[in-house]
């Protein structure tokens, strides 16, 4: 049945429309989860709020479990999914830079736009800086091109590197996520004097 475009179920002209719909949903969920507030985001660093970590872990494990089941049920063919190539050392460096920017700025690229949407001034400044950074990067790109393309590992997945099946890796990852949920909750309880958990039945 899927993926829809590579299998020719729908024409490739639909990809922008699908991207638009998914983008609206993504922005809505980010805002609804409170990610427009830089307090929530930097809270991971200061140890009083791990909602970002839990949010993304939840999204990842639900998607993983869902895709594995859908693959089994024949709704989507995971072998046809495009996997971005892995450039190991540039990715590590890039992740460090992004992490530093995350804590200093209080936004990630996606959440800065949702914050603009609700009219935050710091988010506007953050986005201007973002474009400035992109401009500087493209100007110095020729000098770092070799590093940028170094360490190409091809289109690999973690389960391929570890030599285990996708399903086993999903299971292991869910266990890790659940442990992370519990540990972050313990840390939050210790750091915050008055913990006021969401009411949820």
């Amino acid at each position: 049945m899927g993926p829809l475009i590579p299998l020719g179920q729908i024409s490739s002209g639909w990809d922008f429309i699908i991207a638009l719909i998914i983008g609206i949903a993504f922005g809505f969920i980010l805002e609804a989860s409170g990610f427009s507030s830089s307090r929530n985001i930097t809270g991971v660093f200061y140890g009083y709020n791990f909602v970002v970590l839990r949010f993304f872990f939840t999204a990842v494990i639900v998607a993983m479990i869902g895709l594995e089941y859908f693959d089994y049920m024949g709704w989507i063919d995971l072998n046809m999914i495009y996997i971005l190539p892995t450039y190991l050392s540039p990715m590590i460096v890039g992740a460090i830079i992004m992490g530093v920017g995350f804590i200093i700025g209080g936004f990630c690229p996606g959440t800065s736009y949702t914050a603009i949407a609700i009219g935050k001034l710091d988010a506007i400044v953050f986005t201007l800086g973002l474009f400035l950074g992109i401009f500087i990067f493209s100007e110095i790109f020729p000098y770092i091109e070799d590093f940028y393309y170094s360490g190409n590992m091809g289109n690999i997945t973690i389960s391929e590197v570890l030599g285990i099946s996708n399903k086993l890796f999903t299971f292991i990852f869910v266990i890790i996520a659940v442990i992370a949920f519990y540990v972050t909750w313990l840390i939050e309880k210790k750091v915050r004097k008055t913990i006021n958990p969401y009411k949820f039945e």
């Binding site: 609804a32 409170g34 869902g66 009411k199 039945e201």
Partner: peptide, 17 residues
């Protein structure tokens, strides 16, 4: 918080899943 508007939201979503 959004959860407090409808506290059953998480359970409903997961049930659908």
């Amino acid at each position: 918080h959004v959860h407090e508007i409808n506290p059953k939201k998480t359970l409903i979503t997961l049930t659908i899943f």
